[in-house]
Design a protein around this nucleic acid. Structure first.
Length: 744
RNA sequence: GCGAGAGUGGCGGAAUUGGUAGACGCGCUGGUCUUAGGAACCAGUAUCCGAUGAUGUGGGGGUUCGAGUCCCCCCUCUCGCACCA
């Protein structure tokens, strides 16, 4: 990896290099964990967790994509396990608030994070159960519809289900739960799943109407959102509406939209929009937004409910049953319980003699020597934690450690970290929008609260670069083919015609890949660099295209020849401070290009247009025929090309800089500065429009005033044709750009 | 369903503040040089028309002297989230 990065000529500060599996890095990571433990930001609890049977490990919610493992794409199961968690929910509000302040981040990443955090304002309401002391708590964002709650839906996993089921309904409920359990989580949350439920046999009491309402179990109610119980308002919630129709439950309209009169029997769908309250006792006539407040206050005053805020975000489960990862520095003692590893014993290192059987399960859990440890408190024999941290923990603070990679006295040298952090410009793929980028933000806030650094946020500006894509190719007999396995549209193995597939992200599995080493061997690192910057703006996917690569190689050849072909001519030439005639034009182009490239690169990252501008300058150099008269201007132009290209093609530009007669590196020459005076021409071309359509162009002196410009425009022969027998009503002059003559 | 983004030549893409739409590159066409060209250089290349010109940035309206750009409605695509109560 390092060799390849160097081969591409990338300028990393290798002095700061470290690996997150270095013992020193583990030591400080484990120390951070111990501090989090003391601060109550890390805790252990038994819960239902995401389990990937293929990886044989637990996954955080963020790491489950469409019900599948983010790494291996296998279906994720639920499993009851004791796991370590980080209290990211403590920071839910702050993480959310800052999404409004991170102006240097792409909106879609912020939107994904907001979505993930999922803050919603609502009300928690306690429903008494008939013939039982228990109350069922529900979370709702619509307390205004409480009078319309005609039944209740519980998640099948709800802890009160066992208490609530009546003897008559026992077998029906058991069947239903078994049926739901058979469905995996993807099916369960797929949206078009048929809504199914079963009556529990018990009734709750609607605290406002006093009505007894049946309690159902429903497959669409999720235990891990809200309280796992829902007050069902069929008239004003589509899901409840469908459920009520299916099981013939009563529907009560409590919100009437303006100018309409809803009747339960005639409704085809729930009314979820605004309106005024009806059938709602003392709240009748109030608009529903106001009613949300009023009813919440009323419930609060009677101790039956309170306003709450609910988050979708769950705490970050960090235990992994993998070998590769930082060991969690914890010891379990029969006498003392959960004991943190003392600081002096850090780091807890992975044993280097584990057996990787491939059978699954953590190899550490089977490693007797690793597990065996004496309790630091009582000295009796105890057992080490065999789980390791999610590797996202490592990537959550490495950027801060880069500020002080050799610091010995703690995880972070606060002074150095405060100097470097936050990172001015962070670059990463969009795939980490709600994993790495959320965890890194969380960790930064934790480290701040642990007084290890001062930054609130880790990354001021974020660029989500696109992926490199290429056409896939497939042979009926041999499957996916590497590009070099295709000759003239046929498979080299069997000569069968090759089917062209979609443009997809380069991946080994689909064989649509380019080997960087071969690419560098054939074209050189500079061509590879130039193409990847020129083909598309960095945030877009890059379509790899062999002909485009060749075009870039061709351009570098053109630059090379432009220098060598003119070398003799410019050998003794000095850079001029002004020029005449065609040389003045070239000089203007040179300085305009310096300006354009500077502005495109600095902050805008529009490398493709910057490179295009240099290409224009090179084209102008080829078109320039008066080099013999003013060789200094030619030298200036060629040197500008070389200097402007330096960040993109460092090897070629360094070489050419020497050829141009310089002793020092082109980098030492610094970035070129444009001469403001060289940008302006004496004469400028203006577009003349008549009624908004281009009818001609005129050349006028730069200093021409408005009256002169107007006169010249109207004198243009082609323009005159369109002015004949027309009345000029208005003339708009946009300085240095155009004139629009409005006629009737 | 909700949220975000996008839709411009044969292709990748430009147009930064409302001011010449299509920069630059690929591809294609023609030419020069050459034994040869898959090298290099030059010219051309949005569409329609013989031409002055007309049309043209997913579709339809609007604001404006002027709209790819601003506003409204609609269509399509990509990404993310999703029975979130």
């Amino acid at each position: 990896m390092r060799v390849q990065l160097k081969r591409m000529g990338l300028s990393y500060d290798w002095d700061r290099e470290f690996a997150t599996c270095d013992p020193e890095y583990s030591r400080w990571e484990q120390l951070i964990f111990l501090r989090m433990l003391e601060a109550g930001l890390a805790y252990k609890k038994g819960s239902s967790v995401n389990w990937c049977p293929d990886c044989q490990t637990v996954l955080a919610n963020e790491q489950v994509e469409d019900g599948c493992c983010w790494r291996c794409d296998n279906l994720v199961e639920q499993k009851e396990l004791d796991q370590w968690f980080f209290k990211i929910t403590n920071y839910a509000d702050e993480l959310l608030d800052w999404t409004e302040k991170l102006s240097g981040w792409p909106e879609r990443v912020l939107a994904m994070q907001r979505n993930w955090i999922g803050k919603s304002y609502g009300c928690e309401i306690a429903f008494p159960v008939v013939g039982c002391d228990e109350k069922i708590k529900v979370f709702t964002t619509r307390p205004d519809t409480l009078f319309g709650a005609t039944f209740m839906s519980l998640a099948p996993e709800h802890p009160l289900v066992r208490t609530l089921v009546s003897a008559e309904q026992q077998s029906a409920v058991d069947d239903f739960i078994a049926q739901v359990e058979r469905q995996d989580k993807v099916q369960r949350t797929s949206g078009d799943l048929e809504k199914l439920g079963v009556f529990s046999g018990s009734y709750a009491i609607n605290p406002l109407t006093g009505d007894q309402i049946p309690i159902y179990l429903a497959n669409f109610v999720l235990m891990d959102y809200g309280t796992g119980a829902v007050m069902a308002v069929p008239a004003h919630d589509q899901r409840d509406f469908e459920f009520a129709r299916k099981y013939d439950l009563s529907i009560r309209v409590v919100i009437q939209p303006e100018g309409d009169a809803l009747e339960p029997e005639q409704m085809a769908e729930a009314h979820t929009g605004p309106g005024r309250l009806v059938n709602s006792g003392q709240f009748d006539g109030i608009d529903n937004e106001t009613a949300k407040e009023k009813i919440a206050e009323y419930l609060d005053s009677r101790g039956e409910g309170r306003k709450t805020i609910n988050f979708r975000l769950r705490d970050w489960g960090v235990s992994r049953q993998r070998y590769w990862g930082t060991p969690i520095p914890i010891i379990y003692c029969d006498a003392c319980g959960v004991v943190p590893v003392p600081e002096k014993d850090l780091p807890v290192l992975l044993p280097d003699d584990v057996e990787l059987t491939g059978e699954g399960g953590s190899p550490l859990a089977r490693h007797a020597e690793f597990l065996k440890v004496d309790c630091p408190k009582c000295g009796q024999s105890a057992r080490r934690e065999s789980d390791t941290f999610d590797t996202f923990v490592e990537s959550s603070w490495y950027f801060a450690r880069y500020a002080c990679p050799d610091y010995q006295a703690g995880p972070l040298d606060k002074e150095a970290v405060n100097y470097w952090m936050p990172v001015d410009q962070y670059i990463g793929g969009i795939e980490h929008a709600v994993m790495h980028l959320l965890y890194a933000r969380f960790f930064t806030k934790v480290l701040r609260d642990l007084k290890m650094l001062d930054a609130d946020e880790p990354f001021t500006n974020l660029l989500t670069q696109g992926m490199v894509c290429m056409e896939t190719q497939r042979c009926a007999e041999h499957g996916w083919l590497y590009p070099e396995q295709v000759k003239d549209g046929s498979c080299v193995l069997c000569a069968k015609p090759v089917e062209l597939g979609r443009n997809e992200k380069m991946s080994k599995s689909k064989k649509n890949v380019v080997d960087p080493n071969l690419l560098i061997d054939q074209y050189g690192a500079d061509t590879a660099r130039l193409f990847s910057l020129f083909a598309a703006p960095p945030e877009k996917d890059l379509e790899w295209n062999e002909q485009g690569v060749e075009g870039c190689a061709r351009f570098l050849g053109r630059v090379w020849r432009a220098v060598f072909d003119n070398l003799e001519l410019i050998a003794a030439a000095e850079i001029p401070s002004q020029a005449e005639g065609s040389a003045a034009e070239l000089r203007r182009k040179t300085h305009q290009t310096i300006k354009k490239v500077t502005e495109d690169v600095d902050g805008r990252f529009h490398f493709n247009t910057a490179i295009a501008a240099v290409m224009e300058l090179v084209n102008a150099i080829y078109a320039f025929k008066d080099g013999a008269e003013q060789p200094g201007v030619l030298r200036e132009a060629l040197e500008a090309v070389v200097r402007l290209l330096n960040p993109f093609v460092p090897h070629v530009s360094e070489e050419l800089w020497q050829v141009l007669g310089h002793q020092q590196s082109v980098e030492a020459a610094g970035w070129p500065i444009y001469d403001e005076a060289a940008l302006v021409a004496d004469e400028i071309t203006l577009v003349v429009q008549v009624n908004g359509k281009v009818r001609g162009k005129i050349n006028v002196p730069l200093a021409a005033d408005k009256a002169e410009v107007e006169a010249a425009a109207q004198a243009e022969p082609n323009v005159q044709r369109f002015l004949e027998s027309k009345q000029v009503r208005k003339i708009i002059v946009v300085p240095k750009r155009l004139i629009n003559i409005v006629v009737s």
